[in-house]
Design a protein around this nucleic acid. Structure first.
Lengths: 197, 197, 197, 197
DNA sequence: TATGAATGAGTATTCATTCAT
DNA sequence: CATGAATGAATACTCATTCAT
């Protein structure tokens, strides 16, 4: 009998083997030849596991995002106050703390902007909803604990969006000096208005 | 001397002649051949006025952004209250009102994400600062007029970022239903806290 | 011994299992993967029974041609007069009556034209001779029955060739309108000269 | 001013430069790389003059066919009797006389069989009609000169088709021995019936 | 100065065949 | 005997850039 390969596992393996070049060069310099070489397989083998290039890029981004998001949510869950959690969330993206996470999201958004019809869009939607749900839940929690005013919930969507907006800003402009400070200030000012005194 | 002016003028002319194909196909399908044909010049001529493709794309985006932003600020200046102005600002990007402006910014951000080293970045910075300055100035104005609380200014940066964030969201996700409503709600809720009663 | 018979049987089975995809897509889109899947065996197994792709294509065409030709001759044998038989022969190919038979011969001839060194050529010779022999025999019969003049036999080869020629014409040109009428007219005119009054 | 090239002329030049490899290897081994190399130009240059591979192959076949057919008709026109002309026509294809002409028609028909949707089909139709018209005209002439019976015209189409049929036969079978004799016999027998005694 | 003809490096994808299990 | 995972040579086509005129 011939070897039976776990296709799902091999997809993941090939995708993850590209981690390094992905983080180094982004997706633009990712050619099938390079992917094959990096994964240590033949070019034809790639097409045994992926429909086309779009498919493999999707898998790479998908795997990495899943991996990172899980870590993020876990870390944030460990924190106490609502404000702390939200500030921690922002710090993932604006500090140089995790340069790879930044690179990952950057590529992710850029692909989605350029190829809005692909599966990428569905994934973006899913992830955006997850973030938004998380924001809502911790604000709910804050209200339940009596930390926040009842109308704080109306800011959930905005809180997430301001994060996304500043992330883009940090990527496409030179205005990097006080980015973290800026976002902190915004959240501080907002929470000053929302916290129950 | 006259020749230098001519160069600048010709750069602009060539760039603006591509308006239509840019809005139709985006930047990905913009080839030098096409640009040359559209501009009514030879392919070689392009390289007399532009260093390379990056350079010409920069010029196109630059010219179009200048043009549009001028219009935008003019329109917004005509409005009365601070809240109205800011809501008008958001409407430029989230409604289908001006599909071309959306397309323009989308391309602009996507290029900047992918080629952060180019001149694009400086341009992004400049524009972002302009927006931010505008936000600050109208908030100042609101405070001066007694519409807004003194600490409203701390939200200038956030107000702009939430706009950018939602713009990205509207481009990369399917979550489109109540985008305009969502952003309006956010601004309403925020102004409810900031307005002097 | 039994093994050899099995091999022959399996070759036939695999070949005939491809009937459907052959008639649907022709030979150009016939890949080994597809053949293996359709035959319900592994890709490697194909190479146990066939030397290479050429070999399997030969077998497919061979089996299908055998099958169809047997039917054809049987049907034609049931007819009465010489002219009827010959006209019936032509109808197999020129009418849309049997689209699959047309497709089969088309592929057959096209392969033979392109790869004249293969076994295909021997098969073409065999089949052409069969047709020719059949033409001769029914003309002989016609002469024996007193239907046809004695020198009619000199037209056997031509009668077959005119059929082949018009088949090709019907495949490669748009001149389709009165193909059946044209060939009928030719045979009518010829038989008018050949029939004993 | 830049060089202005006669596009039509260059198309022809590139096409004709492939004559040799076309006659040696047929169309199957004709790759763009090879064509470019043979024509002494870069691969990209090919696409300046041809839409795609199909287009260049069409040009090659087209040019060669035009060239040869002109020669053929000229030669045939020089002959006297109707029978001579028709027999001469057949000799072009069945003898080894002009191996290249045979190869050319072989490829031509084979391409048309495989890609019936291309421009090739229109060309086949045109050429077939030309041949047919020629057959009709010389039969008319024969009738006018009193050589042939008035009903000879009904055989024009058949006479051409029998030629095509035997050409195919000569290409795809081993039955080559008496091909010329066979076709001569057919025409002799037919003319024996058609000639006015 | 203006041009457009020429270019070739670069890329995704296919598929017959092999061979370790 | 049977298999299907692995392969890589082969191929059409694109497009930014150069340079002779």
């Amino acid at each position: 009998m011939a070897i039976i390969v776990d296709k799902v596992q091999k997809r993941r393996d090939i995708a993850l083997s590209c981690k390094e070049i992905f983080f180094q060069n982004g997706i633009n310099d990712l050619t099938i030849s390079q992917i094959a070489k990096t994964a240590g397989v033949g070019k034809g083998t790639i097409y045994e596991y992926f429909k086309n290039k779009e498919d493999i890029i999707f898998e790479i981004v998908n795997r990495l995002i899943q991996e990172r998001n899980a870590q993020m949510f876990e870390e944030m869950a460990a924190l106490e106050s609502t404000k702390e959690k939200i500030k921690r969330f922002s710090r993932f993206f604006y500090c140089e703390e995790d340069i790879e996470l930044r690179q990952l999201y950057k590529e992710f958004i850029s692909i989605s902007l350029v190829q809005p019809d692909s599966e990428m869009m569905a994934m973006q939607s899913r992830i955006t909803k997850d973030y938004f749900t998380w924001f809502e839940s911790i604000i709910d929690e804050g209200i339940a604990k009596g930390e926040l005013r009842a109308d704080a919930k109306e800011f959930a969507c905005g809180m997430f969006s301001v994060g996304e907006g500043m992330f883009i800003k940090s990527c496409v402009t030179d205005i990097i000096e006080d980015l973290q400070k800026e976002i902190d200030q915004f959240y501080d000012a907002l929470f000053a208005l929302l916290e129950v005194k």
